[in-house]
């Protein structure tokens, strides 16, 4: 599952809406505080990792999530 697919599922985003590396809370209505935590939890569950408060503080877009995963040598596709 890609990060985009995961986020679409977590945030109940309709099919046809395009997500990019730049997409963040400003662009998606359901990406609010709760949605943010749900994304982080889903990423932790999906890749069996723990994301630290410092790493969480850096996550503001989809691209940031991928960057964080890359630093952990994870390449989701």
């Amino acid at each position: 599952m890609t990060i985009e697919e995961l986020i679409k599922e977590v945030l109940f985003i309709e099919e046809g809406i395009e997500l990019t590396n730049e997409t963040g809370p400003e662009d998606i209505d359901s990406w609010d505080s709760l949605g943010h935590v749900n994304i982080i939890t889903a990423v932790e569950d999906e890749f069996d990792i723990e994301i630290s408060p410092e790493e969480i503080g850096e996550i503001k877009t989809i691209g940031d999530i991928k960057k964080m995963l890359a630093q952990k040598d994870i390449n989701p596709e």
């Binding site: 709760l34 943010h36 935590v37 969480i56």
Partner: peptide, 14 residues
């Protein structure tokens, strides 16, 4: 309450 859960999830015991 969900706000607190968020704070706790993101910041742990801090």
């Amino acid at each position: 309450p969900s706000g607190f859960s968020i704070v706790k999830k993101l910041m742990k015991d801090r």
